[in-house]
Amino acid sequence: MAAPDQPADLPADRAPSAAVIEEIALATLEALPAEFRAHLGDVVLIVEDLADADTLTVLGIDHPLDLTGLYHGRPLGEKSSSESGAPPDRIHLYRRAILDEWIDTDVGLHELVAHVMIHEIGHHFGLSDDDMHALEDAVA
């Protein structure tokens, strides 16, 4: 049996690919209010199967399926024009951890990917958890 909210074009016996996760994440970006989208053009989206061991160690996470997404960068409010040459801000989505949570919960895949994406976008803007929830509600 397929997990809830199985993408229509995906065979029931196949897990969604990184491309499917990326497509949902990009659709989430497009659904954001214009004032948010205007400040996300330089943020790089990366979809990987799992976080690497170094990332997990730095974050104090024991198991790679416990991390669904991660923002690498400094929140907009903390940036300075003197930071030229810094690597671009990045949002990492971890496909296998997302799929594991998708299967273990009643949350649909689109809703789950959007939730993780908005949470990481929230870190880019330095938003509180309440602000992240409000942004998620605005996109829904």
Rank of each mutant, 00 (worst) to 15 (best):
A18C: 10
V116Y: 08
Y71K: 03
R37P: 03
L26I: 15
A34F: 11
G41Y: 15
I98A: 04
F36P: 01
L65G: 04
A15T: 09
S80Y: 00
A140V: 04
L29W: 15
E23A: 12
G122T: 10
H39L: 02
D89S: 12
A138L: 04
A140D: 08
H123C: 01
I118F: 07
G60I: 14
A2Y: 13
A38G: 02
D89E: 10
L109H: 13
I46S: 05
R14N: 12
V113Q: 01
V139S: 01
A51M: 09
E101N: 03
R95Y: 11
E23D: 04
H92K: 01
L70I: 05
D52S: 09
M117E: 01
D104E: 07
E120D: 05
A31T: 13
E111F: 10
L10M: 10
E22T: 09
V20E: 04
P88I: 02
E30M: 10
L93I: 04
P87K: 06
Y94W: 11
V58N: 11
D62S: 06
I46W: 07
R90E: 11
I61M: 11
W102V: 02
E23V: 11
P7I: 07
E22D: 13
G60M: 07
L26G: 01
F125E: 00
R95M: 05
M1Y: 14
A38Q: 10
A19Q: 08
A25S: 10
G60W: 11
A86D: 07
P75C: 01
P11C: 13
V139P: 00
S84C: 03
T105D: 10
A15D: 13
H119W: 05
R74K: 14
G85Q: 00
D104K: 10
H72W: 15
Q6D: 13
A134T: 12
D62Y: 06
H123A: 02
I46C: 06
H110P: 07
H123W: 03
T105Q: 11
E48Y: 00
E30P: 00
A97L: 00
H123G: 01
E101C: 02
F125K: 03
D54Q: 13
A140F: 05
A2R: 07
A12D: 15
V47F: 06
I21L: 06
V113T: 01
P11V: 14
H119N: 07
R90N: 02
G108C: 02
